Simulated scan of single mutants.
Amino acid sequence: MNDVPKPLEGLQGPMKAMSPGVVDFLFRQLVAGEPPEDTQWQREGTVLAEQAPGAELARRLSETDLESLTPLELFEFVRASQRLVAWAEHLKERAVAHYCSEEPERTQGSARTHGPA
């Protein structure tokens, strides 16, 4: 009859993914009447969603503290990571195609230098 609720073992649902820093940020935004997204960093430079794939994007992703991201920022982080992976995959495919197209020349060149005189 009087079922006493059992204490939760850890956080469940969306709260499980939120670090204390994110919860604190969202609370401060709510109290100040601000949107839940951090709009300040958008004014400081190129946002991750608009950063071109390449070395700068890789640097920014590697230096990001995932624990401090809001859920929306984490989503943008994942999308930026996917763009970087696709860009790197394209570079790899171009390099393999270039290597394969020049393979006969390399084989002939090494046969001339190592073959019978």
Rank of each mutant, 00 (worst) to 15 (best):
N2R: 15
N2T: 10
V4R: 09
V4T: 15
P5R: 06
K6L: 09
K6Q: 13
E9N: 14
E9R: 14
E9S: 15
Q12W: 09
G13R: 05
K16G: 08
K16W: 13
A17N: 07
A17C: 02
P20C: 03
G21V: 00
V22T: 14
F25K: 11
F27E: 13
V31M: 13
G33N: 03
G33Y: 02
G33R: 01
E34C: 01
P36H: 03
D38M: 04
T39K: 15
W41D: 10
R43D: 14
T46Y: 03
V47R: 03
V47D: 08
E50S: 10
G54C: 05
A55W: 05
E56A: 12
R59A: 11
R59C: 04
R60I: 02
R60Q: 10
R60D: 04
S62D: 07
S62C: 05
S62M: 10
S62N: 13
T64A: 01
D65F: 01
S68T: 13
S68L: 11
T70E: 04
P71K: 03
L74P: 00
E76P: 00
R79H: 05
A80G: 02
A80C: 03
L84A: 02
V85I: 15
A86D: 15
W87A: 15
A88K: 12
H90F: 13
K92Y: 11
K92I: 10
K92W: 10
K92F: 07
E93C: 05
R94K: 09
R94A: 12
E103S: 14
E103K: 15
P104F: 07
Q108G: 05
Q108D: 09
G109R: 11
G109D: 09
S110W: 11
T113M: 14
H114A: 14
H114G: 12
G115N: 04
G115I: 02
A117T: 08
